[in-house]
C-alpha cells in the first residue's frame, strides 16, 4: 500500500467573498495556481472562502495582492495528508 507524501500549503483568508474572488482572479491572471477551499480553523475567526497555494508561490502571490490592495486578512500554513 503506497503512502502519499504530505504536502504543505499556504492558506490565505479574506474579509469578504468578493475579496477572495478578486484575489483568485488576480493570482490566476499572473500564473499563480490557487485553489478555493473552505476557510480552515487555522485562520482564526475567518469563515467563507480561503485560497490555498504552494509555498513556493507565496511571496510572489502576497506581493501581488498587496500591490492590488487586496491583501489577505489572515494567513496560515497547513499540511495535506
Amino acid at each position: 500500500m503506497s503512502r502519499r507524501t504530505p504536502e504543505s500549503f499556504v492558506v490565505l483568508g479574506f474579509a469578504t467573498t468578493h475579496a477572495a474572488l478578486a484575489a483568485e482572479r488576480l493570482l490566476l491572471d499572473i500564473g499563480v495556481p490557487v485553489t478555493p477551499i473552505p476557510a480552515p480553523k487555522g485562520l482564526g475567526q475567518l469563515c467563507g472562502i480561503a485560497l490555498r497555494l504552494a509555498p513556493a508561490d507565496a511571496v510572489r502571490a502576497e506581493g501581488a495582492l498587496a500591490n492590488a490592495d487586496i491583501a489577505p486578512k489572515a494567513r496560515t500554513t497547513m499540511t495535506d495528508v
Binding site: 474579509a15 469578504t16 467573498t17 475579496a19 476557510a39 475567526q45 475567518l46 469563515c47 467563507g48 486578512k73
Partner: peptide
C-alpha cells in the same frame, strides 16, 4: 454574510458585505 469574522455579532466593516 458568509465570510469574514462570523463569531462576532457586528457586521463586517468591509464592503460590499
Amino acid at each position: 454574510t458568509g465570510a469574514g469574522a462570523s463569531e462576532t455579532l457586528t457586521m463586517p466593516t468591509e464592503r460590499p458585505d
